[in-house]
């Protein structure tokens, strides 16, 4: 066990955790925004897949990871638009449409990838990382934390920004009202549909960036169905964070560790089945829920379409 705390192992652990954490963080942040506005977005994984595909193409053809991430955001927003039209404007069932969006995205991105590349999987290998001067020389943390693609820091900054926005701005207040008592928001003269539309689009953009990060930076290529449940973990994290977005950072880091710890342990010569490790965070959360079974807090109008004049 003594070689658990060696530098390469710790570096691998922290670096791997950060790599796994970033897409989770973006997805969970997006879902938090959408949920606070009262739209339960089960199709998050689908938005990530659209983002991953669009972002990958951008990075592949335009040779810039930034353009790729931007296109990823657009891809996610495109998928979110389906959700906006069907759930916010037409007020259809959010869970059914969400499941549909997920299945559709899995199908369409696999199909497009197949039509475009056949069985080949082109790679991107010109991703620019930055080394933060001086800080990157610190042992362990230097190699891992301060040797990342800058989008990681952008993501963390985005969490703080959203936190501030939700708490301190009127736009944030409107957003929360749209999720709690949309009728009050309506009575105050603010358009509920518009507020929710913007929230879902923001969610799509963030999920899209998360997906694009997966394909451009984490994997370096797009493979069909590559998100493998990250979006669904994002939904779980957003609900666990109970709309308090600062928790998203901590929770994504925790789940990031669990997704990446097996590699680090193998470096250390410890062999625990990945199945066990991947199970642990969920088991922990479920145990916590059972022991301290507090009522989980969710916006009271979550997943309810808003009809003017009803209730």
């Amino acid at each position: 066990m003594s070689n658990l705390l060696t530098e390469p192992v710790l570096t691998a652990l922290v670096a791997g955790a950060l790599l796994a954490m970033v897409p989770l963080m973006f997805a969970a942040l997006g879902e938090s925004i959408s949920e606070r506005a009262g739209v339960l977005n089960i199709g998050l994984e689908g938005m990530m897949l659209f983002g991953a595909y669009a972002g990958f193409n951008g990075a592949l053809y335009i040779h810039s990871s930034w353009i790729g991430l931007l296109l990823g955001a657009f891809g996610g927003m495109l998928a979110a638009l389906v959700m906006v039209v069907l759930c916010v404007w037409m007020r259809l069932d959010q869970i059914v449409v969400g499941v549909g969006l997920f299945l559709f995205a899995e199908g369409v991105t696999s199909l497009l990838h197949g039509a475009q590349f056949g069985d080949s999987y082109p790679r991107i290998d010109h991703v620019s990382e930055i080394e933060v001067p001086l800080l990157s020389k610190i042992p362990v943390l230097g190699e891992s934390v301060f040797h990342q693609h800058p989008i990681v820091y952008v993501g963390i900054a985005a969490v703080f920004l959203v936190h501030w926005m939700l708490r301190r701005t009127s736009a944030g207040l409107n957003l929360r009202a749209a999720g709690e008592t949309p009728s009050a928001l309506d009575a105050a003269g603010v358009d509920v549909t518009r507020t929710r539309t913007l929230a879902v689009l923001a969610c799509g953009a963030l999920a899209g960036i998360g997906g694009a990060y997966l394909s451009i930076i984490a994997a370096g290529s797009f493979t069909p169905m590559m998100t493998q449940g990250v979006g669904f973990i994002g939904i779980v994290l957003a609900m666990l964070a109970r709309g308090k977005v600062m928790w998203v950072i901590a929770l994504s880091f925790l789940f990031g560790i669990s997704l990446s710890i097996s590699t680090a342990l193998q470096l250390a010569g410890v062999n625990i089945s990945t199945d066990v490790i991947q199970m642990l965070p969920y088991v922990t959360v479920i145990a916590v829920l059972l022991l301290f079974a507090r009522r989980s807090y969710l916006p009271s109008a979550l997943a309810l379409p808003y009809f003017r004049g009803e209730r």
């Binding site: 299945l103 995205a105 899995e106």
Partner: peptide
Amino acid sequence: PTAFILVLVGLLL
């Protein structure tokens, strides 16, 4: 890809 069937199902929804 067999995933094409998923497009069909998604559209159906």
